[in-house]
Design a binder for these strands. Structure first.
Lengths: 225, 225
DNA sequence: TCATGGTTTTAAGCTAAATTTAAGCTTCCC
DNA sequence: GGGAAGCTTAAATTTAGCTTAAAACCATGA
């Protein structure tokens, strides 16, 4: 899952980036509103965190511009101002949620999860067939048997399952899971697909990840019948 | 065809699901209004069946919200209430049709077919006859049956269907699909036309690609008659 | 600071699939 | 009948993906 943070204070930005990367998010930072808006419009993010008070272009204006472009991705507002008026203003501009500074990192994380959940899923269990994953605890189960995954393995599987029944192209995967934005001839994806398949297979959930040759991969929900 | 049933009584929901699946529909169930609405907004259904009296969010509210999001998919109301007033209320909320409980399964089926028939005519996705292609997911369907194509096969079919009802000359095909800009005596096109025809034929969409001798090929939309 | 163990990435050989070539066959039309 | 155009099939070639091993990286604790 790929996030953009628009925050001018390097301390806070860095703190957020580190913390979120520990949670397996791919994180980009923009230090002013103008840059942030450009990045948001050019790249595909799964969620944006934007501070209210930033140089070049206010957070609220960034938010408005993004919505004006027709993009509905979840936007989370960071604000020191906490009067009702400001909050209303932010939500009117198209933000999905807000959080007051100073905040607990855990709370931010919870709110991010809510946004990602409502965006992608009807129910809040991320699963495909007998395999289910829990982003909050970073656990993966094949039926009732737990599978231990490394951070990258988890991030890849999470992305594939969140996009269940859709083809995930190699370029989208490399962007959203590895945060690499240029064409490269790396074969990390292949290697990690092999890792995942091996572990899933060992836990009896073989054949979950299918290859679409020349395009990418897909995790299909076994048809209900 | 993929349907969503929003119905809290497990008995009715299960009965509907089983019956509809026998008719080759893909059926999802939501047991309350909130979940149902989320599913309807996130996934792409061909039709929704929603009960009037359901927990979390009334059927009528679900209907309103779906319409508010700009989605025009057919919605069928299930209701025990049968006063004229209730029916008017439901249709005003954006439903396409209603059916009173208890009902005959056959009647429900008939009404579903009516809705799906009118829907398909307006649909101008990339298709010709019963064959439709989705460039976003690289999927091809003959009716509801998926056809697996290699990248080149897909590219060729996409080009032909995008230029439906127009003759595609050999030189245009070789330029647009193979990116070859000089005259060559290759016979790849012939070979790939054979590949495509074979796969389409196996999926029951034979005769889609016609040869124009000396010129090229054409995919025709079967005339509506 | 350095060693350690785990994770991630790179690289290379291998395999299987996709693509292209080529040759013989069929059909159409003069 | 004969030639041109297209069809079909098999074989050759190329490419993409799989697998494995090893190198690089990173955090941890002695």
């Amino acid at each position: 899952m790929r996030l953009l943070i628009i925050e001018d204070e390097p301390g806070i930005a860095g703190f957020l980036k580190d913390g979120l990367e520990e949670e397996y998010f791919a994180v980009d930072i923009a230090y002013d509103g103008k840059t942030g808006l450009d990045m948001a419009l050019i790249n595909e993010y799964d969620l944006i965190i934007v501070d209210w008070m930033i140089p070049a272009l206010s957070g609220i204006e960034v938010c408005r511009q993004i919505r004006k472009s027709g993009n509905l991705l979840p936007i989370l507002f960071l604000t020191a101002k906490d009067t009702l008026e400001d909050v209303v203003f932010g939500l009117d501009a198209g933000a999905n949620d807000y959080i007051k500074k100073p905040f607990e990192f855990e709370e931010l994380l919870a709110r991010i999860r809510v946004q990602l959940r409502t965006k992608n899923k009807a129910d809040d269990s991320l699963s495909a067939g007998i395999v289910s994953i829990n982003p909050a605890t970073h656990q993966v189960f094949s039926g009732s048997q737990e599978i231990t995954l490394t951070p990258k393995e988890f991030a890849l599987l999470e992305y594939l399952i969140r996009n269940k029944d859709r083809v995930c192209t190699r370029s989208r995967i490399i962007e959203h899971v590895w945060d690499i934005h240029f064409d490269s001839d790396t074969s990390v994806i292949d290697v990690y697909i092999t890792f995942l398949r091996k572990k899933l297979d060992a836990a009896g959930s073989g054949n979950l990840i299918q290859t679409i040759r020349g395009v990418g991969y897909i995790v299909r929900e076994p048809s209900v019948s």
